[in-house]
Amino acid sequence: MLNMPDNNLIVETVELVKRYPMGRQELVALKGVSLRFCRGEFSGVIGPSGSGKTTLLNIIGTLDVPSSGSVRVLGETVERLSPAAAARLRSRHIGFVFQTFNLLPVYTAYENVEFPLLLLGMGAQERRRRVMAALEWVGLADRANSRPAQLSGGECQRVAIARAMVKEPALVLADEPTANLDAENSHHILETMQKLNQELGTTFIFSTHDDKVIGYLRRRIRLVDGRVAADETG
């Protein structure tokens, strides 16, 4: 059970600061970022390279901890989580979509999508039902037995989306998901994500500087030099 004071609040960052040591100096990637993301949002953090997008997504995804400030994800305070508890939170409630797909090359599309459910220790029948449903969502049920090398870039990214969605997570973090796709595939992918967001109510947070993606977002948070420069909805 999620420990959430406000059922609609998925992520909350308060005065988030992240510093990286760079020799004797330090690089400050985030300089006091305060944001709230609610259930069902289709939002994105946009900005040029080095603006702190990936760092913010890493912290929200429990892959990193802030230097100061606080982050609550699905009711859990990230900076207080042990590595095992953070991994548990990721495996149960957070889906990831990476820019380079990152499928496991020796496994089929079906097995790649099945993997997160294996981590949850789900029974075989329920796994099969969910995996086939996820592949149906992304329109790849007929390619279930293909391996990544036999799929196009767009198909690989759709498998990656199915893998992120199969456990029906509360939150999906997508880091530049269209960076390696052509325009047609990008739109196809984004439409798929938008449909899942609407049908399942999953919260999507993108990190991107791709105009194609930005066009689909309902909320756009512009980061400049580690600070929130704009937060627009609509």
Partner: peptide
Amino acid sequence: YQEIGIRLALGETKLQ
């Protein structure tokens, strides 16, 4: 290296 990274990101613990 990459495969192990994916698995860690997807929520497998280092011990797993």
